[in-house]
């Protein structure tokens, strides 16, 4: 069963095409990251999934419920934690969370039981009667997370949930999301924090020019990195006239960038040795999902 199935999704604002045939699937219980530069269309995609943005074309189905044919049935299974603060500044934390349960048709008594548990886990008990405008950024985000999951959604959509959150709160949110996912909720996470994605997500999709340009498990995508950079620590200054992509990065240090699909570092090591410059140590610079993202989406390494 798929928690989310998006096919050929299009969205234009006037002449500007933001999404140009996006396809994405998230299995039930999956934890998928949606990556992309600012303005790549992540928030628009999330808006369409959750009913906040009208699509120009394509289909979206949540647990098999088509969002055009059965929008309310589809929305019953999905919940959103938005990027921006989207709650009343004058309501109490408790009312914000309980009201959200009410909008999903959950009675006050049951909602209160669920909220008690969430407030305990997310350490919001001490502010439950505080007005939301008086909360710190981290508490606001935790409250928004509690609000999103009060309906116990099958698919939770998170738009940069830990932006502006301190390290402790970030880890608390990570633990909570892992627990939620273990209990069966599928999660779609849009984030700019690659450590967060690598920590939490089993799969990732990279959005570029309104389409998914790469998709797979986080491990797969990291291993697909073609352009790699290593740092050589040398016995002396790197020779300047070598016909190699070597960039000095210190007195006895150089960065070497190469195509990992067709070669390894031996050519550089041999060439350096022939000029009397021995390689004492090799360190990988960056690597993993972040470098893959940058190479795929047209960033630093491409």
């Amino acid at each position: 069963m798929l928690a989310l199935q998006i096919s050929d999704l299009h969205k234009s604002y006037g002449d500007k095409e933001v999404l140009a045939g996006l396809d994405l699937q998230i299995p039930a219980g999956g934890f998928t990251a949606l990556l992309g530069h600012n303005g790549a269309g992540k928030t628009t995609t999330i808006g369409i999934i959750t009913g906040l943005v009208r699509k120009s074309g394509g289909t979206v189905a949540i647990f098999g419920e088509d969002s055009d044919a059965h929008p309310l049935r589809a929305r019953r299974r999905v919940a959103l934690m938005a990027q921006d603060y989207n709650f009343s500044q004058f309501e109490t934390v408790e009312n914000v969370v309980l009201d959200q349960a009410g909008f999903y048709g959950i009675g006050r008594k049951e909602a209160r039981q669920r909220a008690d548990r969430l407030f305990r886990i997310l350490e919001l008990d001490h502010v439950r009667l505080a007005q939301t405008r008086n909360l710190s950024g981290g508490l606001k985000k935790r409250m928004m997370l509690a609000r999103a999951v009060i309906s116990q959604p099958g698919l939770l959509v998170l738009d940069e949930p830990t932006a502006g959150v301190d390290v402790e709160a970030r880890h608390m949110i990570w633990d909570f999301l892992r627990q939620l996912n273990r209990e069966g909720a599928a999660v779609l996470l849009a984030s700019h924090y690659f450590d967060e994605v690598e920590e939490l997500c089993s799969r990732a999709a990279v959005l570029k020019d309104g389409r998914i340009c790469a998709e797979g498990s986080v491990a797969e995508l990291s291993s697909k990195l073609v352009t790699r950079t290593v740092v050589f620590e040398l016995s002396g200054p790197p020779p300047a006239d070598l016909d190699l992509p070597l960039e000095p990065c210190g007195p006895n240090c150089a960065e070497y960038t190469y195509d990992s699909a067709s070669e390894d570092i031996s050519r550089a090591v041999t060439a350096l040795a022939s000029r009397g410059c021995r390689v004492l140590a090799v360190r990988s610079r960056g690597g993993g999902l972040e470098d893959y993202f940058l190479s795929c989406s047209g960033g630093r390494s491409s």
């Binding site: 009913g51 906040l52 309310l72 929305r75 938005a82 989207n86 709650f87 009343s88 959200q100 048709g105």
Partner: peptide, 18 residues
């Protein structure tokens, strides 16, 4: 208008409320 301005209208728009 406040609900639109502060964006908390989204609370009902994302929920299964006609």
């Amino acid at each position: 208008y406040s609900a639109r301005f502060q964006k908390y209208i989204e609370e009902v728009l994302v929920a299964p409320v006609p």
